[in-house]
Design a protein around this nucleic acid. Structure first.
Lengths: 234, 234
DNA sequence: CGGGCCCTTGACGTTAGTCAAAGAGCGTGG
DNA sequence: CCACGCTCTTTGACTAACGTCAAGGGCCCG
């Protein structure tokens, strides 16, 4: 249990809070191990809990009226989800599902509510988490609206690169079906879009991406789609 | 000034709060009238203020690295923006611009911070506003990812309809360039997509949309794009 | 060895963006 | 009052981006 607490303390939601104010909350939670593909909660359900990911990957998604799945967010270790809905007594805006075998810490909404009521810093922490989520959504939305599939992949890969390298090889963190969903593409389109990156110095080998030049990739990622078809740098 | 206060009290952010706790905050704010097309704040600026729209329309948008504008949100009377960034001492995640002549109440971030520190309900209110914004973003993102342009327009129009009618005429709330931006389309595509709604009982006349049957439009809006091209209801 | 599942590829259709042009409203100034 | 210029909107022709359907290869696991 010690280990659980240590991991949970590093969660984005908790890391800036005084330790003692958080530990009691964490220790009220229960740890769950769930298998790949298992559902954690459903969109529209009352938000009975907040979750902290101790290990593994979780996707948040919505099912549209016509039945297709839309990936809203993909989270891993030390990320939390459900906290905003939990404190407000609302319903989950998305469904959540494990995409790998996953260890979760589940904390009761009421416990969180009490903690928030008892402590202004805790309230601020939840607020700050919501703001960051918001910001991430806004950025993602902007990407989807203004970049082509290949450019979105480029951004995705750049996000996986260590910041100070010029050439690097990154491991794709989850399977390509999920990457496609996250980037708003079908798997077939993803596969083709990967190949459009070849002339920009990216090779995909199984679950690895070999990037020749981060700078070159960034140029491509932020290039105006309008200008791309007439490069004539000859 | 009485009138300003009354309008501001109806803002989504304030309406559930005890009146006296809000009035002093509102009265610290200053009213501004700004013209169509004028900038209110820029993305990346420190969030010095929270704004309440007293009258008019405001768009929140981002400029992508390649220079294109992405509309994130379009707001009108009694909506607030900037509050989440203001209380967290962050930077604005978007730029804001008036799309009509607009009256704004501008409230200093520090005043808001003090109010939040002094009152748990106020903190909850900000949190709740952030959550709703979040939810709206998630829904919008899901729409963009899973519906065609014409279907997004259909949803947009349905959102303008009074809830209990079968046939109705709605006025488009702002110009078509902005509607296009909001729905993730170019004006030309919007114009063409409008025409695709004709067989589903929608006519666009100037700035009005005449809807023959709300139910029929809803069917179209939520139909699986896959099945749409072979309806053969003959 | 066989059955899934993931991933890729090809052929084709749909959707939306680009470029160019022209029509419709509207305020201004002659 | 009308001509003019302006912006918003529509249209046409073409292209790029993406989805769909179908097929096949690689891989893991029973």
């Amino acid at each position: 249990m010690k280990h659980t607490t240590e991991t949970a303390l590093k969660a984005d939601l908790f890391r800036e809070l005084p330790r003692d104010c958080v530990v009691s909350l964490i220790e009220k939670g229960s740890v769950k191990t769930i298998g790949r593909g298992a559902s954690i909660h459903l969109q529209g359900e009352p938000a009975h809990s907040l979750y902290v990911i101790l290990d593994g990957w979780v996707k948040l998604y919505r099912i549209s009226p016509c039945g297709s799945e839309v990936v809203i967010s993909v989270l891993n270790r030390a990320k939390t989800f459900g906290e905003a809905a939990a404190v407000s007594g609302e319903r989950f805006p998305t469904s959540a599902e494990a995409v790998t075998e996953t260890n979760l810490l589940q904390i009761d909404a009421q416990d969180l509510c009490h903690a928030v009521e008892g402590s202004a810093v805790m309230c601020r922490a939840v607020l700050s988490a919501a703001l960051h989520r918001n910001h991430a959504l806004v950025k993602h939305l902007a990407q989807i609206k203004s970049h082509t599939g290949a450019q979105r992949i480029a951004h995705f890969l750049l996000g996986l690169c260590p910041s100070d390298t010029e050439a690097c090889t990154v491991v794709l963190p989850y399977d390509k079906v999920l990457i496609a969903g996250w980037l708003g593409l079908k798997p077939e389109s993803l596969s083709r879009a990967f190949r459009k990156l070849t002339p920009h110095g990216v090779k995909i080998v199984k679950d690895r991406a070999v990037i020749e030049s981060v700078e070159r990739l960034l140029d491509f990622a932020e290039e105006d789609p309008t200008t791309s078809w007439s490069p004539k740098y000859a």
